[in-house]
Nucleic acid binder design. Structure first.
Length: 129
DNA sequence: ACGCTGACTATTA
DNA sequence: CTAATAGCCAGCG
């Protein structure tokens, strides 16, 4: 992270509070909200469920709005393919993500989810896709 | 309008 | 095993 002087609020096209733009984000948020407590998924899995498996980055980018939109999206349940908490630094407090996961019964060691594959929740399957 | 950056992933060396 | 590279798509200077 070189430097983040961007004071400007990211993304206004989503118009939080006034849902109307059915963008890629809403789809991501919807899926992310379906993640059961005590489960985790990956950006690629969500992207794949949306039909954009190649655009895992867009999912992560959408997550950037997750803590801005309502209702709040459990972005802490979304990790990378390795079960690594890559986005923990975006929660305001890096420890918040891990704390939330552990609170839900997920073991996290060194920013990595233990038994990730066992706790993995695939939206493409669970949602009947 | 062009180029850089990014909460990713898979492939190749 | 780890490191580097390409593909991805949208926002921002």
């Amino acid at each position: 992270m070189k430097k983040k002087l961007s004071k400007t609020e990211p993304l206004k096209t989503i118009t939080p509070g006034g849902k109307r733009d059915e963008s890629f984000f809403e789809a991501v948020f919807e899926v992310a909200r379906q993640i059961p407590k005590g489960r985790v998924t990956s950006y690629g899995a969500v992207a794949a469920a949306l039909g954009a498996k190649s655009s895992a980055r867009m999912v992560g980018w959408a997550m950037n709005n997750a803590h801005i939109v309502k209702p709040k999206v459990p972005a802490h349940r979304v990790v990378n393919r390795q079960g690594l908490l890559t986005g923990k630094m975006h929660f305001g407090d890096p420890d918040q993500m891990q704390a939330l996961l552990e609170k839900e019964g997920i073991d996290v060691k060194n920013d990595q989810v233990q038994d990730f594959q066992k706790k993995f929740w695939d939206p493409a399957v669970e949602l009947g896709l």
